[in-house]
Structure formats: structure tokens, C-alpha cells
Amino acid sequence: MFAAERIRIIKNYLLKEHKVSVAKLSELLNVTEVTIRRDLEKLEKEGFLERTHGGAILKEYTEEEHAEEFVDIYKTQRQEIAETVFHLVSDNDMIMITEGLTNVYIARKLTQKSNLTVLTNDMRVAMEFANSPVNNVILLGGDVKEYAVYGQLAENNMQYFSVKHLFVEVDAINKQAGIMVSSISKASFIQKAIRSAEIVSVVCLANCFGEKSLYRVGSVDLADKIITNSALDDSYKDYLFGLNIQVYTSVDIYEE
């Protein structure tokens, strides 16, 4: 992979997550930690990030801010998506929510429902529902990677469950490359999760349409529904309609 492509992926990751470890980027990009440190040094000189012990944080993001409240530049967009999902889930449903920050916002909103059974591999999602006594949450076991569990154990555990609605958060949707995510663990997990669901809804921020990430989950038409925010370009709406995929945006919840 060329240096320019690595830099682009690192920037996109930090814009979403605000902080990252050298080890995580080394695994994500399949290069040595020495190479990652050089990339981070270059981005620090550009003023994009600040290097920390073992990683880096986005320049505008500080540990003090993190301690008080998570700073999210896409907060409004994620809240719009969460509001849309709220109208697609009914009390008593059994659903699955995969790892992702937008899915955490979705979980927070869905705690207003009653008697949901929620299966997840994201510890943040599980914690949202752990404080909701009127709903039930099941956290899959597996290898812990940052905020979520992955690996063979997590995938094996999924075979014992069948859910009505699966909400999969992805990092990019591209007409040529399809649905993409940032790690092979995430791609493999999503591919297995899809087999356990009646309805597959793909969650993706509008600004990630037309972008690319590192690993391909599959073609766009593996989704029954795609849920995004109101900034989605009309050309992508037309493209998805042509594939007979239901598209939900925050402008019109029932836009199909």
C-alpha cells in the first residue's frame, strides 16, 4: 500500500474515533509499527494529530475533553440516524447491533423501547442497555479489541441466535467495491452475523458513501435496508433504488 493511501486511512480513522494506537494501525494497515510511527510523525508535523505514548489523538481532541464527554464531530448526523432506526424497531423485537459509534447512538435511543432483546459484540452498546431494566442485552464472548469482541469464539456464539433485525455499521459504501470496513475481524464477523438475521440494515454516514476502506464485506445488495443521514447524494439514492434496496434518511423516515 502506498504511503498516501495509508495517510488517508489514518486520517479517516482519527476523524471518526479521535484516538488510535500504533498497534491498532499496524494491524489495520498490515505494516510495521515503525512505518506507522513515521506516518504519525508526518501528520503531527502537518498539525493534524498529536502523538501520544503508543499512539495518537486528533489535534482538536484532548484527554480532558474525553474525560468529561466524548467529542464527536458527527454527533448530529449520528443522532439523525438513531432517530430513524427508532421508528424501524418495535417493542418486543429481538435485534442485533454490531460494533460502531453510530450504533452506540442507536442503542442509546432504543433504550426508550420496551422488552427488546439485544445481541451485540460492542461493549458500549451493551452498557447502554445494561442501564435499561425494561430491555434485555446479550454480549457475545470473544477476543477483546478496543470496544468490541471478535474472533472465532464470537462467531461461533452467533450460531445459537436468530434475530429479526440486524444493524450493521460499516465504514464505506462504494458502487464498485461494495460494502467495506476497516478490519478483517469486523468483515468476517459481519459476514457471519448476516446469516443469523431476517432483515439486514446497513448503517453508514452519508460522507462515507463513495469512499473506500480496507476490507470488503460484500456487494451492496446484501443489505435489505440502508440507513444514513440527510446529506446522502441523490446519485447514490438513485443507485440504491435501482438495486431495490430500501433507503432511509433523516429527511424522510419512510423514503423508499
Rank of each mutant, 00 (worst) to 15 (best):
M1V: 07
A4Y: 03
R6T: 10
I7F: 07
I10M: 02
Y13Q: 04
L15E: 15
E17P: 07
K19S: 12
V20F: 05
S21N: 08
V22I: 15
A23F: 06
K24H: 13
L28F: 03
L29P: 13
R37G: 12
R38G: 05
G47R: 04
L49D: 02
L49S: 03
L49T: 01
E50I: 14
R51N: 11
K59F: 10
Y61H: 09
T62L: 06
E64P: 00
E64M: 04
E64T: 07
E68Y: 11
F70A: 06
I73H: 03
Y74R: 01
K75F: 11
Q79C: 03
E80A: 11
E80L: 08
V85S: 06
H87Y: 09
S90N: 12
D91W: 04
D93C: 02
I95C: 06
I95L: 03
T98Y: 01
T98K: 03
E99A: 15
G100C: 11
G100A: 10
T102I: 09
I106D: 06
I106G: 02
A107Q: 11
N115D: 15
N115E: 14
L116G: 01
T117I: 06
L119K: 05
N121E: 02
D122K: 07
D122C: 14
A126H: 09
M127L: 13
E128L: 07
F129W: 06
F129H: 08
S132I: 07
P133I: 06
V134N: 14
N136I: 08
N136T: 15
N136P: 07
L139W: 02
L139E: 02
D143C: 09
Y147M: 09
V149N: 02
Y150K: 05
Q152F: 14
M158R: 09
S162W: 10
S162D: 10
K164Y: 07
H165Y: 12
E169P: 12
V170A: 12
A172E: 08
A172D: 02
I173H: 06
I173V: 15
A177T: 05
A177G: 02
G178E: 13
G178F: 14
V181L: 07
V181D: 04
S182I: 01
S183F: 12
S185M: 04
S188M: 13
F189W: 10
I190R: 01
K192Y: 04
A193I: 07
R195A: 14
S196Q: 15
E198C: 05
V203G: 13
E211T: 08
S213P: 06
V220Q: 00
D221R: 08
L222Q: 03
L222E: 01
A223D: 01
A223I: 00
I226D: 04
S230V: 09
S230F: 11
D234H: 05
Y236N: 00
Y236M: 03
K237M: 10
K237G: 02
D238L: 12
F241G: 10
N244L: 04
N244S: 13
Q246F: 10
V247I: 14
S250V: 08
E255C: 07
